[in-house]
């Protein structure tokens, strides 16, 4: 393989493909960690679970959660594009379609962050 074939460069569809997989792997790993965390509920009548939830209630974790939601939204938005392309819809405009779904995704992410962060910070102050 020549070097310029290894670097994705301006090939948007290839970047979408790569990021979709990376986000997917991150979300799959999160799912495992999430179930393991929830599994602590069986100890001490839920006291262990409450302790872990309290530990997670800080700005760093809230920021990581927003990043996690960003990965979910990216994966959803590009996944929607992939399904459209499965049905040969917009196949000649796949780059424009990518920008369109990313735009909608960005709007949703901003809406999520703007409504969720004040709630998160209020609960952190308590």
């Amino acid at each position: 393989m020549r070097r310029r074939e290894l670097w994705l460069g301006r090939r948007l569809g290839a970047w979408a493909w790569l990021l979709h997989r990376l986000a997917g792997i991150v979300l799959a790993l999160y799912l495992v960690v999430h179930i393991m965390t929830i599994s602590t509920a069986r100890f001490e009548d839920g006291a262990a679970f409450d302790r872990i939830m309290r530990t997670f209630n800080n700005p760093v974790v809230k920021l990581l959660e927003i990043l996690l939601i960003a990965a979910v939204i990216f994966h959803m938005a590009n996944g929607f594009r992939v399904i459209l392309l499965d049905f040969v819809l917009g196949i000649h405009h796949q780059k424009a379609l990518l920008w369109a779904v990313m735009g909608v995704g960005a709007v949703i992410l901003v809406a999520v962050a703007v409504t969720l962060l004040p709630l998160a910070l209020a609960s952190g102050a308590r």
Binding site: A41, D45, G46, A47, F49, D50, M53, R54, N57, P118, L119, A120, A122, S123, R126
Partner: peptide
């Protein structure tokens, strides 16, 4: 949850 901490 309206900002309440998640509890068991």
């Amino acid at each position: 949850q309206a900002g309440r901490e998640i509890s068991f």
